[in-house]
Amino acid sequence: MSGNDAGDENGDGRQKSDEDLSARLKRLENRIEAKRPATPYRSAPGAGAPKGASSLGLAMRLSTEFIAGVLAGGILGWLCDQFLGTKPWGLIVLLMLGFATGVYNVMRVSGSLSRPAVKSAVEKHQDRERS
C-alpha cells in the first residue's frame, strides 16, 4: 500500500503521506466503531446459550426478585422493631410493604411498568437475546 510513496525522499512528500496514512487510519477506525455495536457476541457463555436459557434466567430472576422484596421488608421491619421498640407494628407494616415491593419488582423486571430507565434496560436485554 505504501509502495507508492516509498521512493519519495522528499520531506514534504513524506509528511503528506503520513497525513494520508493517519487520515486513512481514522476512517478505518470510524468504520470499525460503526460496525461494533451491531456485532452479536455469540462466542461467549450466556449469549451463546439457546433461547430457552434466557427465559430460564428470566424466570429465576422474577422469583428471586419477589422473594428478595418480601425478605427485605421483613428484615427492615425486624430491625425497626429491635431498635425503635415499635413491636410488632414495624414488622407488620414493613412486611406488607415488602410484599408490595416484591410485586413492584416483578412488574418492573417483566417490563409491564413503563419506567423509562428500567424498561429500556429490560428491552435492551431482550433485544440482545433475540439478536
Binding site: E65, A68, L76, L97, T101
Partner: peptide
C-alpha cells in the same frame, strides 16, 4: 418512595440469593 427504598434494600438480597 417507601416501596423504592425497600426495593433498594432488596437488591443485594436478590443478587446474593439468586
Amino acid at each position: 418512595v417507601a416501596i423504592e427504598i425497600v426495593s433498594f434494600v432488596s437488591r443485594p438480597i436478590s443478587l446474593a440469593v439468586r
